[in-house]
Design a protein around this nucleic acid. Sequence first.
DNA 1: GATGAATGAGCATTCATTCAT
DNA 2: GATGAATGAATGCTCATTCAT
Lengths: 226, 226, 226, 226
Amino acid sequence: MGIQERKEREGERRRQQIIVAARRVFSSKGLNKATMEDIAGEAELSPGTIYLYFKNKDELYASLSLRILQYLLIRLKHVNSEKNETSEKRYAALTKAMVDFYEFDPMILISLFNLQTSETLKTLSPELLSEIQMLSSKSIEEIAIIFKQENNGEVSTEYNPSFLAETFWSLFSGVVLFQESKKSFLGEEKTYLKISLEMAFQIFKLGIKDAQFNTTVKERRITGIN
Amino acid sequence: MGIQERKEREGERRRQQIIVAARRVFSSKGLNKATMEDIAGEAELSPGTIYLYFKNKDELYASLSLRILQYLLIRLKHVNSEKNETSEKRYAALTKAMVDFYEFDPMILISLFNLQTSETLKTLSPELLSEIQMLSSKSIEEIAIIFKQENNGEVSTEYNPSFLAETFWSLFSGVVLFQESKKSFLGEEKTYLKISLEMAFQIFKLGIKDAQFNTTVKERRITGIN
Amino acid sequence: MGIQERKEREGERRRQQIIVAARRVFSSKGLNKATMEDIAGEAELSPGTIYLYFKNKDELYASLSLRILQYLLIRLKHVNSEKNETSEKRYAALTKAMVDFYEFDPMILISLFNLQTSETLKTLSPELLSEIQMLSSKSIEEIAIIFKQENNGEVSTEYNPSFLAETFWSLFSGVVLFQESKKSFLGEEKTYLKISLEMAFQIFKLGIKDAQFNTTVKERRITGIN
Amino acid sequence: MGIQERKEREGERRRQQIIVAARRVFSSKGLNKATMEDIAGEAELSPGTIYLYFKNKDELYASLSLRILQYLLIRLKHVNSEKNETSEKRYAALTKAMVDFYEFDPMILISLFNLQTSETLKTLSPELLSEIQMLSSKSIEEIAIIFKQENNGEVSTEYNPSFLAETFWSLFSGVVLFQESKKSFLGEEKTYLKISLEMAFQIFKLGIKDAQFNTTVKERRITGIN
DNA sequence: GATGAATGAGCATTCATTCAT
DNA sequence: GATGAATGAATGCTCATTCAT
């Protein structure tokens, strides 16, 4: 029992050791340029050892996402479990969670967003794929819960909270990717990610508050604008 | 002169021929799986010929982005040049332009968003890179102009129109990527991209209209929530 | 036309160039130890070039067999087309054809026999597989024709000529493999392959001549020996 | 002494345990595809343990051949020790022994035939190699003894019994390999191995019986047919 | 300009074998 | 003796790119 436990802990440590090394190498060389040998070297292990813990390069890459998604989910659950009494406080907590999520590991977050629409997705093992999917879904659900709570007059009841959560998530990823791209494109070292996110979320919040929304959309539809 | 002109025209025709073929191949096989030989075959040319018109695979790929960015810029300029008298109409035209932009070539658009943050960026020739950059900037500027026009009372004067345009662009890319990822992840064939975009843009519009925005943000700052 | 012809001839020359190199390398290093790089080096080509002419290593290996099977088929057809008037002469010609077949390229012949029952078989392209199969079948058919001609009283009419041909072929491959194995096992340089084959074939010939065969077999069956 | 004995017995049991597992794995996956880990798993041992009993994979593989060769030798000795009074009975017993030999483990038998002419041979330890060699030789000697006994008028005295035994063995291996290859090539599930062998052996028997043989061969030699 | 045969660097992955425990 | 985690050498194959024709 004690032995088994120790082995499990050591195994987990190895995984982390590899993930840490992979993160460093992927960050500095990029997904394609980084070789398994690079990663093995960085982890001070042999290439073969990596394959004891990760099925292949893509799965190793995708596995990086798991950790940060787990982190996000925990943070979002906290937002909902804490006694954030006012809508204002809950939203501020949500905003902070997202900013922290970004800061937890920007590079991996970018990877996750890129992974979403990449061909790599199709080659991942079903288990890993569904784990990523599940964590994403759960996080979006937690966000949806926050928007559901707003329904006490603040948010138009006609919004589907899941749709709101998805749009919120989209806004988040869009802002992160855009700011990151400014960094790459312009060579800007410092970006205003945090303030950009805060302001974007503020706009979003005000956008979903308004009671006249339905009318407006209906009007548009009736007037036939498309 | 006449000869030179003809040659230029023929050269441009070849470029387009290749780009069209590349688009088809990239769309069906994905960026990495598509080989230069595939593209050459599709264009009914030899691999070597492609290198007479494009420096390398990355540049060919990036050139595809140029086309759709050019398309977007034209559409956005139209929005501003047309006599869209009311704020409502302008925004509807903007929305339609963005939806059309997506539909013009979804696959290439996704690639563009991924390109933004990829390593590939670093290997592109400065000319191509700056052209992409310029087109993106101009498009965002055109969007900014639209928001500037709103300033007659509808939009709080304290917003920086460029920031609004960037956030709008971010929202657009985020929604596109998210919906696209739902397609891949869930295998959903039909997605609600158009309606999602329209609703997201509606929320955004309402969000930037509100006069109380500044107050709200200031309060948050003063109360020290971070 | 002239150009196309020349290219075809050059292509065929390349294939031969590679096959010759492969034969040398396979002979000296064996199937598994021989690397594609070895073969490329021997052929004074780059590894990539080999893949322009052969799908993969296994197909290159299996392709070696084609040439000798073609040779055998031609020889066997000659045996049947020549005016070998007596049974004796035909059989002598058949024997000589088989001996020459062995001497044409012993190493590749061994490879063919090993290929027959190897797992490699399953990974070959259907085209190559069926070509090998077709050539083998045709050769066996030609042998069957020889045995059919014997039917004028010399060979018991109750034998199925195809079965006889298959058994003859089996005897041939068995003797070749056994003599070859003696060479490897015992380090004997000189083996008596030719004389062994001739004697084995002589025994076979006498064995199928006898008119009492049927009786003998029937008796065995009746007595219930099994 | 008692302790040492027990240890030896236990050691031998382990060896058998591994051999049995290896046979299963080799049979189902084929020689090359089967990994030492597969075999270890099947034997419910760890990979390292196998190396306590077998020097390496090739030796483990070759050891399998020993088992079936031992089986064959025992069977052949029985044929000679039993009171098979007539030539007919002895030959029937020999035939049965060979068929049983095939059925004892077809896959390993095929491997043995392929091993004969493979590069692997050169990497085996001298001890193992000579043991295989010795068993093969002894089996062929036993067969030779059977043919020697026929010499009482049935078989021409001019045949070298060892040569006959080798040819008989060649015929056996040739038929087995050919029938096996038909199975692989044509995907035929059922083959007529047993009946093919019986008929082939019958032909062989008749072929060596004939009194005119010598004359025939001599004539051929004299007439200079080659 | 066009060709397309040739290039050859580059890399993920496997698996027999070892050895510290 | 037994373990099994770790090793790391070894290699088939791809494909962007070049260049002689």
